[in-house]
Design a protein around this nucleic acid. Sequence first.
DNA 1: GCAAGGTC
Length: 858
Amino acid sequence: MELIVTEKEIAARNIADILSGGSATVEQRNGVNVYAWGGRRCMGLSGHVVESDFPTEYSNWRDVEPVELADAPIEKRTIERAENIVRTLRLLARDADGVVIATDYDREGELIGKEAVDIVREVTDAPVERARYSSMTEREVRAAFAELTALDDDLAAAGEARQEIDLRWGAALTRFLSLVSGRRGQEFISVGRVQSPTLKLIVDREREIEAFEPETYWELSAALETDDGDTRSGDSAGEASGSEETGASEGSFEAQYFDAEAGRGSDRVWEAATAERVDGALREATNAEVVGVARHTRTDDPPHPFDTTQFISAAGSLGYSASRAMSLAEDLYTAGYISYPRTDNTVYPTDLDVEERLSAFLDHPEFGADAGALLEGDRDLTPTEGDEETTDHPPIHPTDELPSAAELGDAEASIYELVARRFFATLAEPAEWEQLRVTVAVGNHRLKANGKRLLDPGYLAVYPYASSAETHLPDVSEGERLSVREVRREEKRTQPPGRRGQSALIETMEEMGIGTKSSRHETIERLYERGYVEDDPPRPTTLAKAVVDAAETFAEQMVSEAMTSRLEADMDAIARGESSLEEVTEESRELLEAVFAELEASREDVGDLLRESLRTDATLGPCPECGSDLLVRRSRHGSHFVGCDGYPDCEYTLPLPSTGEPTLLEATCEEHDLRHVKLLAGSKTFVHGCPMCRAAAADAEPDRLIGDCPDCGETAGGELAIKSLRTGSRLVGCTRYPDCEYSLPLPRRGDIEVTDERCGEHALPELVVHDEDDDDPWELGCPICNFATYEQRRSADGLEAIDGIGEKTADKLADAGVESLADLRGATAEGVADAVSGVSAEAVRKWQTDASAGADAD
DNA sequence: GCAAGGTC
């Protein structure tokens, strides 16, 4: 029997299908699909099935000096999730008299193949061969299996070098920085070859923004009108204007002053006196003369095929975050509607029959007409090409399986349309624009106006994501006199560079050569998880600035993209057989040890710098009692509070809300000079504001009595009251607290109205909550009944019943809006993982499976 | 408890 091993399940299915001519059968072994036909079996891996790590004796951060990791042994272990796959591989290999490695045709594919070979070698000496195909088409795959080659050990070794170097540098430096900064628990300081240069990219831009000093300038413009005020349209000679106009109306248009003597960017006036003088001259003038009319035709080429980066970028313009876009693309890929979404390739393989693929859309209700238009006549359907042609996967394109409208959710449908239309666009003609530039003289001064008209929409007809907006100007000719209608002078300030959005970051990472098509969006997610960036576009936290600062000073290699370029060069040398895994990792080890020698020598400086920055990050402002700094601190129980740096001499404290992770905002309280506090709690994130104001407000708010305490009212005369706590939360509690701890929760926001209506069962007044952001008041009702239904809903659904969800996690999930099994099933794994710190999408998917299994059992 | 790279 011949065993074929692919990188992923779908590839196994496709290869079995192609090689068997559709006759392959499938059976499950250890829950893994195995395809069988003739004398062949085919199974898929799930990417890497083994991972590298240090032996367990190195796992205690305090017992092991971080630098020891530079040459500690490294073990390979089966990845837990892949255990069944490995078991099945061994099982099948025992019966195999030949094995073909058919993993992806790239460096990691070679390494994944070698991992499979190592497992196969545990049970058999059967010969191993390698199939290399660059697209999953019948011709390519058949050709690959007709010309089997050997596994490229050098290429696999290059991949291993990367693995080892990334692990040693990342783990050793992460531990060192975490330990030296005195951070405890889960909040370690993470650095790595890819994440740290990415973080530096973000921090550097923020530094530019912070250092930016705006300059004042003026822009002057005038509304001009042709003397007859007619509607002649100038930007398409002789053609009647059929489309709606943007910009000018009738015979009038706006022209902007520019300094004809100066070069580019000369429409900005930098001196107030000049602006004043030109403004005066323009205002005095009644007439202007057209002194130049320049027309030219511009060809606007259709875009090249989608690689991952360009796809993420295009999806970003539609409002999808990078990871959301990838997650949707993966869904469409798994469902069989689009090709593999992780690719650097921008050239369609020659055996992709674009005409056939396009024809498949002819009957499509939405895209049929566009596909038809592209196929009309005997047009040459030569697709556009980008610069990058790789062997692993084709550019992202629709497959021959078309989804029906009902099969896709809204977001999936819009991403599918994007991919389909991009494919159309790569087969379409260029768009043609006519550009018109009119220059006008007012005395010695010059004004200009630009117009553009779409002569031929070309690819824009099938690809509406690129703008086809026109700017129309009236048809004026040289020497023509115009009236000056209105003059405007605007004072403006130069703006700092903008923050890079996720797409721009991913594009820059690609230009810098860091990360991969599959991992760049995950790296950005990781920066969010580590508390290095907030918001979208990502803005660095103080911690991020401190880490980049420290790394720049003491381990420059870690934040430099040069580390990756050097690694790439070394890997290429290994792959060419000019260097070896041992040589490269040995050299890297020496470099890492040299970095550590410096770090150790500056150990205290590094610690001081990080601690100081972390302290700044946690500093609210001056203590009202002793003038030292007030800091966000963590109590022994894990809850946060505001404490004085002068402790134990000064014992001043302020409480903080118990939900969420506190972060400090730039905004400061005018009265107390303290920074505002925001609590990050997924979808329930809220701004607490100045904790001193909140405490004072709570102190000033009198308790409102609403009835007898059900626990001690009869025995001890306790009464229930609506109370505001200094943490900012509110509750209904007993007046005999702390002797009686009876309490019911109340919402944090909104004015609570105590109505005259009483609950028949508990004799308490019905409450209504008025939120200023919400016109619709919330009829909370009797607080006891309200709490009872809330509890019932929570416990009946029993999130805690699921393996891996404890009380704490359930609380965190509830904070993120996932309060029941139904909520969990209805949520997207990525969405939940985004909202809840320390929870991976993988874990959520497992919970969802468990939740559904539980529901089936009911 | 560390990284980055596959895959889902």
